[in-house]
Write a protein that binds this DNA or RNA. Structure first.
Length: 442
DNA sequence: CGTCCTTTGAAGAAG
DNA sequence: CTTCTTCAAAGGACG
């Protein structure tokens, strides 16, 4: 199974890359290569003209390492104080920017400067958090200076291969060998994990990064495992006021944009094969039913009643009511009846479970409410106005029930659901009932 | 040494 | 368009 999986994965990637090229390799690729070379020469000329030297990279690197991160005195205040664009951070940041290993032309480290100095900075000109977010991201970038070959910008000769995948044989990812396997070092060992371009952090990751240590100090108990800490952090994230969350969403947004600037060609897909074993991830805790006959929240409650959806649907993930029939907490790969990814489909075996699991596959207490009954009960409750009589849902876990209000980033966050508003026609009380019963899991 | 655990959010693949 | 999977961080546990 696993072996199949591996090969399938490779297959998928190859096929897609072939598709993506969309032109039969051959003369086109030759011409492309020539174009790329021209471009590279031009960039090299620009570099030398700007006085920058690739050889200086090491010096710059050591400079950065020599500068401790605490030299960002604004950081400690970020958590609590709204950041003013006029906050005097620039004098401090300037040396970093000017000597950035990313080069003078790198927009990544320039962004904070732009944010702070230019009132017309196009990104979040009015956001009190933007400056802070930018500074945080910049700090992160400095502290985690990428390995040489990963650095963006014309200063890095290796970058051409990274930024212009056309230098690589078709279908070959920057971190892969031509066989599609992780590229190996000269010694024959696998390339270190750090050698691939990592995904930009999302809001929650930034939150974790910032608060993990705090939490550790707070509880003082270092026996707590990381996973446990993360649970706690997840709770705190839910409890975090919307405005506070917004700060992290902006940091994430900033990080994404920087990342995109730095690695325009990069796609998250490139990392999919990096840690293959992770495909084993299970989704067990989903108390969810395996009743494939159950409709998904969207279908059950309608698109306009997102506040009634389960948390997974809200996050555009797998609905609890309509999860896979396999039911097993093991293994996600190819578990869903859609026969999704190459793994299952290429095996040629249609999902054996499709439609085969009876609706009562789960213990009664774990059965999600019948949609019709549920709505009836809901209406009844609304009519009676007795929110408490329903009692807690067996599926509910208080820790993760979150209000739709703070459930997500604000509307300014474009890619986040912004339809979390409570229907004004529903009273708060009713809404709570709905939340208890429908947002079951959590 | 590599993977798992555990969280949320983003991106991308597939239907 | 919808659904689902993978990965990002962290660090102890475990095989």
């Amino acid at each position: 199974m696993i072996a199949d999986d591996d090969s399938d994965e490779v297959k998928v990637f190859r096929r897609e890359e072939g598709d993506a090229d969309d032109d039969p390799m051959g003369e086109t690729s030759e011409q492309q290569l020539a174009d790329d070379k021209k471009e590279a020469v031009m960039e090299a000329e620009l570099d030398s003209a700007s006085g920058a030297r690739v050889g200086d990279l090491k010096q710059q690197e050591s400079f950065i390492k020599a500068e401790p991160s605490p030299s960002f005195p604004l950081m400690p205040g970020l958590m609590t104080t709204p950041f003013s664009p006029s906050y005097p951070m620039m004098p401090i940041m300037m040396p970093f920017i000017m000597q950035s290993p990313y080069g003078l032309r790198s927009p990544n480290l320039m962004l904070p400067m732009g944010a702070a100095l230019s009132p017309s900075f196009p990104m979040f000109p009015t956001s009190p958090f933007y400056g802070a977010a930018a500074a945080m991201v910049a700090k992160h970038q400095l502290e985690n200076a990428a390995p040489l070959h990963m650095r963006a910008g014309p200063l890095n000769p290796l970058n051409h291969a990274m930024r212009m995948p056309s230098y690589l044989p078709p279908g070959m990812m920057p971190h892969q060998s031509s066989s599609g396997e992780p590229r190996r070092t000269q010694g024959g060992g696998k390339v270190k994990k750090e050698d691939h371009i990592k995904k930009p952090l999302n809001a929650f990751m930034w939150f974790m990064k910032e608060n993990r240590k705090k939490l550790l100090e707070e509880i003082g108990n270092h026996e707590k495992q990381s996973a446990e800490l993360n649970k706690e952090l997840g709770k705190r994230w839910h409890d975090l006021p919307k405005e506070e969350q917004q700060k992290y969403f902006e940091m994430a947004k900033k990080d994404r944009e920087d990342h995109k600037e730095k690695y325009p060609q990069w796609s998250a897909r490139e990392n999919y094969a990096v840690n293959k074993k992770k495909t084993k991830k299970r989704r067990d805790k989903s108390i969810a039913s395996e009743n494939s006959d159950q409709k998904k929240c969207r279908a059950r409650f309608g698109v306009n009643n997102t506040e009634m959806w389960c948390k997974f649907c809200k996050r555009k993930k797998k609905c609890e009511y309509a999860t896979d029939r396999a039911g097993s907490s093991e293994l996600v790969e190819s578990q869903d009846g859609r026969g999704t990814s190459g793994a299952s489909s290429s095996s040629g075996s249609p999902s054996p479970n499709t439609g085969s699991v009876p609706p009562m596959a789960l213990p009664l207490h774990q059965q999600p409410p019948n949609p019709h009954q549920f709505m009836q009960s809901m209406l009844m409750q609304m009519h009676l106005g007795s929110a408490g009589s329903l009692g807690p849902s067996p599926l509910a876990s208080s820790s993760s029930v979150r209000s739709p209000i703070d459930a997500n980033a604000s509307d300014s966050e474009s890619d986040v659901d912004d339809d979390e508003e409570i229907d004004p026609t529903i009273t708060q009380q009713t809404h709570e009932v709905i939340m208890q019963e429908s947002v079951c899991t959590l």
